[in-house]
Nucleic acid binder design. Sequence first.
DNA 1: AATCCACAGGAAGCCCGGGAAC
DNA 2: GTTCCCGGGCTTCCTGTGGATT
Length: 412
Amino acid sequence: MDEKDIFETFLNAEQLFKDKEVIRPSYTPEKLPHREQEITTLASIFVSALKGETPSNVFIYGKTGTGKTAVAKYVGKELIEKGRQLSKTLLFVYINCEIVDTEYGILSNIGNSIIKNWNEMIPFTGWPMEKVYDKLKEEIEKQGGVTIIVLDEIDKLVSKSGDDVLYVLSRMNTDLKNAKASIIGISNDLKFTELLDARVKSSLGEEEMIFPPYNAAQLQDILKQRAELAFNKDVLDPSVIPLCAALAAQEHGDARRALDLLRVSGEIAERDEQKNITEAHVRKAQNKIEIDRVAEVIRTLPTQSKVVLMAILLNREIGQETLTTGDVYDTYRALAMKANASILTQRRITDLISELDMLGIINARLISYGRGGRTREISASVPVKETKKVLEEDELLKNLSNYKPLKQATLV
DNA sequence: AATCCACAGGAAGCCCGGGAAC
DNA sequence: GTTCCCGGGCTTCCTGTGGATT
């Protein structure tokens, strides 16, 4: 086969997507349906920046995919625009704390996004904290006006490196003379303020906003708006958007999930060389997203847990649907021995089984066989073949998958 | 009613790696 | 650098228990 032909089929395929970017999670749309009220509230807080006063610090809470980041970025953008019209100095800095999660990183990032002069940049390592802070202050002072700092996924920052940075930042206003700074913290964990120092808590939480999840109807509006830009005319079956919305509404109204479903549906249809996207593609997409999620969880499991999971899967392969803790432990021992791994005690395996249960990879419920003992009844809740494939990626588990467990004496 | 199975799961303590304090 | 402390993984030892069987 000559090389051109490989691509030929794809090139000739019907174009479903007009602009795929629009339904990627990173895209910030022009309009945010059903977030008008949140936008207004946030704008009313920020408006003082235009008057040259310090806006209150804000905490924004809400589950994933409720539009927190989008609203913050949107209002920030509008604010800068307005500021330019009124020729006021306004700076807007956005930092995702999942990516930048150290005290030094936060401060130097804020600093560098303000500093205009290339050769004055704060190096990514090397300076003492004190110097970084002074430099940051100096720059903000030099620019004057109001600087708004958005710290997204702020809970990640606090859980990884504590609240020292927040304390430093919250105190910055008292050190500044002719400039002002205010902070927006975004978190999807409502309880995370409990980890904070009381002073930080009160100074950062001057205003609090909670973003409610979207319902199915609202999700439909969001999807419609994006679909118009993302897909060519008439490629979507009319039932596709309602279905995506309904499925995502079940997952605590996650707009990101809804958009993912729509995008993956499109990608599946595209690969199948279909001219339009149907309900069936959405179902497949739902399945694929779920499998990807599970695969990711399994991949990051500690090795011993993987061996336990393998033990359960192998038993199921020989027709043992439900197992007791003892059955699992027997197989586990054999596998661990074969893999030259250390063999943990049954007590420990009990805990690992509980963890797998919590992750939803297996089902374990407590039952009693009367005189036959009291134990857990364990069964896998993931597809055997696919899961085994993921487990085999682990060097240690590679040659375990063809092991045949001893048939357990079946009790009736 | 008493027995007894096959574990569940709590308590205490060991070991080890990593970060803070000295 | 050393020391101290903390948390997580793990073991050892243990008590508790639902219900078929005796």
